[in-house]
Simulated scan of single mutants.
Amino acid sequence: MARRVEFVDTSILCNLLGIPGKCQDRDQVVKEYQAKTRARDCDLLLPVTAIIETGNHIAQLADGRQRKDCAELFAAMLRAVVQGDAPWALNEVEWDGAHLQALLAGGRTGSTLVEHACNRLGCGDLNILIERDRYLARTSGVAATVWTLDGLLSSYA
């Protein structure tokens, strides 16, 4: 059986971190996270897009105490990723011409970046799919999906 990895979307990170105004599904996401952690059958990878978007959501919090608390939790999560603490694993992304070409082409989705934009799939979500595709291209014996609460993104995940 192939090793499983899941690319974690911003919607999941916001719920795991309890970011005010962005964590309506926190109980459900925390339960899923705990189940994944207990099962130890899946590595979680943070795409660049999810890291940047989550950091922006934290920075935009009006309450300074909430902003600091969320930023500290987020920093601890990122340290766990760097250290490879289960269930987290590091996905090293090469941001180069090939990555941008894949983004423009829409990867394996069958639609271009422009077509996705017209259909309301954002560049960030598309980039998560490209990261997953490129990860699969350089890794063998792995099944990779995207863990998201976003309906449109999950249709491609």
Rank of each mutant, 00 (worst) to 15 (best):
T37P: 02
A98S: 12
G106V: 04
C42I: 10
Q66S: 02
F74V: 03
D43M: 05
Q101A: 12
E115A: 00
K36M: 03
D96F: 00
G64C: 08
L44M: 07
L78D: 07
A59F: 15
N119V: 06
E72Y: 09
A89P: 09
L46V: 01
E115Q: 08
M77H: 13
L113C: 08
Q34P: 10
G84W: 15
L104W: 13
A35D: 02
L90P: 08
R38W: 06
F74L: 11
G110R: 00
L61N: 00
T54F: 00
L73P: 10
K36T: 05
A105W: 01
E92G: 04
E115I: 01
R108S: 12
D63H: 06
H99R: 14
V81Y: 11
G122N: 06
R79F: 05
T37H: 00
H99A: 15
L45E: 07
L103D: 05
G106S: 06
G107F: 10
V93T: 12
P87H: 04
A86T: 14
L90E: 07
R65C: 08
G110C: 12
A86W: 09
P47F: 03
L113Y: 01
E72R: 15
E32V: 08
D69W: 14
K68W: 07
A105N: 09
G97E: 04
M77E: 15
C70V: 10
A80R: 15
N56C: 07
V82P: 04
W95T: 12
A39V: 08
Q34I: 05
L78C: 13
P87D: 03
F74P: 04
L61P: 04
L73C: 08
D96C: 12
A71C: 06
A89D: 00
R79P: 11
A117G: 02
L121M: 01
E72L: 07
G106C: 06
Q101V: 03
G55W: 05
G84Y: 11
L100S: 13
L100E: 10
L104Y: 10
A86K: 12
E115M: 03
L73Y: 15
F74T: 00
R108A: 11
D85G: 10
Q83N: 09
L103T: 06
Q83T: 11
K31G: 14
D41M: 01
V48Q: 11
A80T: 13
E32C: 09
A89V: 10
E115T: 05
T112I: 07
D63P: 04
E115S: 01
A35P: 09
I52M: 02
L113T: 07
R40M: 08
A59K: 06
R79Q: 15
A50I: 03
G106Q: 04
R38Y: 03
G84N: 10
N91Q: 13
E53L: 03
E32F: 11
Q34F: 09
N91V: 14
W95Y: 12
G122S: 03
F74Y: 15
E94S: 15
Y33G: 01
F74R: 06
E115W: 02
L78R: 14
K68E: 12
V48L: 06
V81S: 00
D43R: 06
G110M: 03
L104M: 13
S111Q: 05
A86L: 13
R65E: 00
I58D: 00
V81I: 13
D69G: 09
V93H: 03
P47W: 02
D41K: 08
G97A: 09
L90K: 06
P87S: 09
G64F: 14
A102T: 02
